[in-house]
Nucleic acid binder design. Structure first.
Length: 401
DNA sequence: AGGTATTCACATGAAACTATTCTCTGAGTTAGG
DNA sequence: TAACTCAGAGAATAGTTTCATGTGAATACCTGT
């Protein structure tokens, strides 16, 4: 009996296609970054003065998601730190991801996170902003040093807070007597710089580096490299890699997406006991990614949001009539709320929520004018038909209908 | 027929309000010396 | 006496309401032929 079980376990172990799955996960930092030599060099070139304890120029990095921005910057950071230890120079490079909600979506949460990372005592906040600032200054300014702060997804804080925050940071240098700080902003919104205070723009954008999207061939290289580490030999065909690359290239050359595809295709193959990764699993993986994304959004959305989405969904199904307008949704929604004893929000808010569904890609809502019959949004569901049932049941369950 | 004015049904903005969540403070409590 | 807990206070946030203003084009209304 025990032997038999063991056999099963052994089989399970052996049938694994993976050598090291972590290689395909998002936070893996490889030893080399293919096709990003130029960018890495630029970044390094700009930051290198820190090794002489001089303040590097502020740097602004942008490019679409999955173009290796974060990776390259992190890589340079690591190398700089190694080198600094070697040379006995004291440097500090802090990294903050502004996208992680818990970490930072407030001026002082960011500062608090920074302070904490630098070994300061935990969130110190009485009269918020002011005090945290002085605490922060105090911490940095205790000795002569250059501190580099990396803000990943920096556009997020600007959206959440205002650009005052960045302005105060850039101005902070004048308040520091011994230390100096240098800011690095990473953003995937290229238009982001255009919408911020010119003063901030000029100081943050002292240097700029653009990360272009990878093309399909480059993606293949990247995938190939990771495959060697991630999978056992002979598991992955060339065809598989080029297909993953092609899929991701279509999505603005997103390497992260390509790696996800590969990993999930691997997992699917493995689950089905296949000895190789078959092309068909890539399509399945692609579906799965899309699906998971949508399901996740839908199931974690706030109640009112779900109510609206449910209303749109129901209207789409019941009415075979061409298009749905804001007013229709609002009416259905009101009934729905009455039936289910939910609070009814104003039309103003509903309008905004519909806008949100559009932003998240769940619907397409376009403002159209029906002439004499007013202006409104024309709303259509944006996901594939075969997901409708599943989404409906998610909503029904989550709303307790 | 061709031009102009209206008008609808919301969109879009700004400001104010509300409930809830954080964090800190300081009083009161507890335990150890 | 130091450490610890816990209620209350002040501030921040997210979500929403209220008030105000904007808007594209189908239609109603002219106008002169």
């Amino acid at each position: 009996m025990g032997a038999q079980l063991n056999k099963i376990f052994d089989n399970a172990m052996n049938s694994s296609l993976f050598k090291n799955k972590a290689v395909l996960q998002a936070n893996f930092v490889p030893e080399s970054i293919p096709h990003r030599d130029a960018q890495v060099e630029q970044v390094a070139g700009i930051l290198v003065p820190i090794l002489r304890s001089e303040r590097p120029s502020n740097l602004f990095v942008y490019g679409k998601t999955g173009t290796g921005k974060t990776l390259s910057v992190q890589y340079v950071r690591q190398e700089l730190q190694k080198k600094a230890v070697e040379l006995g120079v004291d440097i500090r490079i802090e990294y903050i991801n502004c996208k992680l909600k818990k970490v930072a979506d407030t001026e002082y949460r960011i500062l608090a996170a920074l302070i904490q990372q630098m070994g300061g005592k935990v969130a110190e906040t009485g009269l918020p902003t002011e005090q945290v600032y002085s605490k922060f200054i105090e911490m940095i300014d205790d000795k002569k040093q250059v501190v580099i702060i990396i803000f990943d997804e920096i556009d997020q804080i600007i959206k959440k807070i205002s650009d005052d925050f960045l302005y105060s940071l850039t101005r902070l240098n004048s308040e520091l007597s011994k230390a100096q700080i240098c800011l690095i902003g990473i953003s995937n919104d290229v238009t982001f710089l255009e919408n911020i205070d010119p003063r901030v723009r000029s100081s943050l954008g002292e240097e700029e580096i653009v990360f272009p999207p990878y093309n399909a061939l480059q993606l293949q290289d990247i995938l190939n490299e990771r495959c060697k580490l991630a999978f056992k030999d002979g598991v992955v065909d060339d065809g598989v890699i080029s297909k993953c690359a092609a899929f991701a290239a279509r999505e603005h050359g997103d390497a992260r997406r390509a790696l996800d595809l590969l990993r999930i295709a691997g997992e699917l193959s493995e689950r089905e006991g296949s000895a190789k990764i078959d092309l068909k699993y890539i399509d399945a993986a692609n579906d799965k990614i899309e699906k998971d994304k949508i399901f996740d959004i839908v199931s974690t959305a706030p109640k009112q949001f779900q109510l609206i989405l449910y209303s749109i969904l129901k209207l789409t199904r019941e009415k075979k009539i061409e298009s749905i307008f804001t007013g229709d949704v609002f009416n259905y929604y009101q009934d729905l709320c009455k039936r289910t004893h939910n609070e009814i929000l104003t039309q103003r808010r509903i309008s905004d929520i519909i806008g949100e569904t559009d932003m998240l890609g769940l619907t397409n809502a376009n403002v159209i004018s029906k002439g004499r019959h007013g202006r409104t949004k024309e709303i259509k569901l944006a996901f594939a038909d075969h997901l409708l049932d599943k989404i409906e049941s998610i909503l029904i369950e989550s709303l307790g209908l």
